[in-house]
Simulated assay, not measured.
Amino acid sequence: MEKCNLCRIKSELCNSHAIPDSVFRSLFKKGNGQAIKLSSNERSPNCKSQDSWATEQLCNRCETKLNINYDQYGLNLLRGKVGEIEKGSEGVYFLNIDTLKFRSFVLSVFWRGAVSEHENYKTIEVSSGFLELIRSSLVRSAKVSKNSCTVFVQRLVDTTEGGFSESNLRELVVSPFPRTYEVRGHLYSSITMIFLGFCFEIFPSPIHSSEKISQFALGSCKSSYTFPYLEITEIPEVLDLMVSSLRKVNQGLSNV
């Protein structure tokens, strides 16, 4: 037996997911049991896969706890089953939601990815102190303090002619990737995750220097949040992946 990453008690471990398993199950269902895998590695061909990025890391008790306390609420919100939704010209407005609980869901996914040994989460590199802060909150079934970090969430769109539909964007899952920004002379690092048609960006060092930034920080308002629209083609990391994958098709490096 090995130690559970959450409660740290020796136990039989589950095959645990960071990005929830239901996200992958939906992809596999639509793809006759498989999803299309694209890699930024120029030598890796486009191919089909049944990999849901799971590793043994949580005991059954902790797996169930995270599923009930965080995943159920977060996934229902992302699927439009929680609160009231209004679509505007600049984003999607969610009313009557618990933004701190939703924020904790995002951070629970982030934490599971950070402690996972799966290769698709290896790019998540943050301090052990930040991970311990999240872990201790999850162990106590508590909401992660909104002052511990800054989280932004945006709704993916594609307004280009013949571009991706909303349904297409919901089927896109991208391995987390790092970024660095300069805000008023200070450098901030972030990790971005993409799934279910949303882009989640986590800054382990909270950003307090801009009122505009604070306005779009998840949890700044406890009962509502505006998910600003984000063009999928304006994410350089994703655009580069698409260009690379198209090049592989032209080079015969594609099995799909």
Score class of each variant (00 low, 15 high):
residue 7 C to P: 09
residue 7 C to R: 02
residue 9 I to G: 01
residue 10 K to A: 13
residue 13 L to Q: 07
residue 22 S to K: 06
residue 23 V to F: 02
residue 35 A to R: 09
residue 35 A to F: 03
residue 36 I to C: 01
residue 36 I to D: 04
residue 37 K to P: 01
residue 41 N to E: 12
residue 42 E to N: 11
residue 57 Q to L: 03
residue 58 L to F: 13
residue 62 C to W: 06
residue 64 T to I: 13
residue 65 K to D: 15
residue 66 L to C: 04
residue 69 N to F: 11
residue 71 D to I: 03
residue 74 G to R: 03
residue 75 L to C: 04
residue 77 L to H: 04
residue 78 L to G: 02
residue 82 V to G: 04
residue 83 G to P: 05
residue 89 S to C: 11
residue 91 G to D: 01
residue 94 F to R: 12
residue 96 N to G: 12
residue 101 K to W: 00
residue 103 R to Y: 00
residue 108 S to D: 10
residue 109 V to D: 09
residue 111 W to R: 02
residue 113 G to Y: 06
residue 116 S to K: 02
residue 116 S to R: 02
residue 121 Y to Q: 09
residue 122 K to E: 10
residue 125 E to D: 10
residue 128 S to L: 08
residue 144 V to G: 10
residue 147 N to H: 14
residue 147 N to V: 15
residue 148 S to T: 10
residue 154 Q to E: 14
residue 155 R to G: 07
residue 156 L to Y: 04
residue 157 V to P: 00
residue 166 E to I: 11
residue 169 L to F: 10
residue 171 E to K: 06
residue 176 P to A: 09
residue 176 P to V: 13
residue 177 F to R: 00
residue 180 T to S: 14
residue 182 E to G: 09
residue 186 H to T: 15
residue 187 L to A: 10
residue 189 S to H: 12
residue 197 G to A: 02
residue 199 C to E: 07
residue 204 P to K: 11
residue 205 S to C: 09
residue 209 S to F: 02
residue 213 I to N: 14
residue 217 A to L: 11
residue 223 S to Y: 05
residue 225 Y to D: 06
residue 225 Y to F: 10
residue 228 P to F: 04
residue 231 E to N: 11
residue 235 I to M: 12
residue 240 D to E: 12
residue 242 M to C: 12
residue 243 V to W: 05
residue 249 V to T: 09
